[in-house]
């Protein structure tokens, strides 16, 4: 298994636009993302997991340390790293079809071909008969399907997903998670998936990294043993080892980090 992305001793600062104050969000962070793996990062809110994803996406420059993709430093966003955002980030002034075909358009693909390609991925994302609608006419779940289709259509080498299902209702979220499993079964994908839900991380991931706050670092990484073909919510809820794993990781996420523990002891 070859390594795609290497994060080495990374530190990230966050600048508050109002006050100008800087705040260390991530420190001493090491992480390797292998080719064709589905890696989930789980952690409490404010642990810096989304900041880490921003840096890998190239929206944010490292303060210290480095991020390499296939051996080269990441200097900015690029089409080889597709991002799916929690807030969908669809362009409100474009139809669903144009949104899905956007990456292909930016590559200079002719209209007919890119529409055909985009339609194929809209179908994969279970979207039918909405291609001429505008994003504001869609539900949250449908918007996120469009966003996923848009990223898939652009055939990125790595797909970065930043809590993509956090803003949709519980029913839709489960459906979307199962669809994502189905999509990852039919095409080899390298995915970095950020979530605050331990269940979601185990359900989706080949591996799950637990991140701790203050400033954020990777605490531990566990392998998920369940075959992807068997992952449906009905099966997983009935699976005792799934539940055991969930409880174990929940404890890890809830436990105060090493830094926080020493700070508490000192106080």
């Amino acid at each position: 298994m070859s390594t795609r992305i290497v994060v080495d001793q990374l530190a990230l600062d966050y600048v508050n636009a109002e006050t100008g104050a800087t705040h260390r969000a991530v420190e001493h962070c090491d992480l390797r993302i292998a080719a064709d793996e589905f890696l989930c990062i789980v952690g409490p809110s404010g642990c810096g997991k989304s900041t880490l994803l921003s840096a890998i996406a190239g929206f944010l420059a490292p303060t210290h340390g480095s991020i390499l993709m296939d051996g080269r430093a990441i200097t900015g966003p690029g089409a080889e790293r597709g991002v799916v955002f929690q807030e969908y980030a669809l362009l409100p002034w474009m139809t669903v079809l144009d949104n899905a075909a956007l990456g292909l358009k930016l590559r200079g693909m002719a209209r007919k071909e890119r529409y055909a390609e985009a339609r194929r991925f809209l179908a994969i994302a279970n979207l039918h008969d909405v291609e001429h609608k505008y994003p504001h006419e869609l539900s949250g779940g449908m918007k996120q399907r469009v966003a996923v289709a848009r990223t898939l259509a652009n055939a990125p080498e790595v797909m970065l997903m930043d809590e993509p299902f956090a803003a949709v209702d519980a029913q839709t979220r489960m459906a979307l998670q199962e669809e994502l499993i189905r999509i990852s079964l039919r095409s080899r994908l390298t995915v970095l998936f950020i979530t605050h839900s331990v269940e979601e991380a185990i359900f989706l991931g080949d591996r799950v990294a637990v991140m701790t706050p203050g400033p954020g670092r990777i605490r531990t990484i566990v392998d998920v043993p369940f075959a992807r073909e068997t992952r449906t919510w009905t099966a997983m809820n009935a699976n005792a080892s799934f539940n055991a794993m969930r409880d174990r990781l929940l404890d890890l996420v809830r436990q105060p980090s090493h830094h926080a523990a020493t700070a508490e002891a000192a106080a």
Partner: peptide, 20 residues
């Protein structure tokens, strides 16, 4: 620029003002 993306919070109210 690449540096200011993670910054959140409400945007400055007056477009003339430049803070910091």
């Amino acid at each position: 620029s690449v540096g200011n993306v993670a910054a959140s919070g409400p945007r400055e109210a007056a477009p003339w003002s430049m803070r910091p």
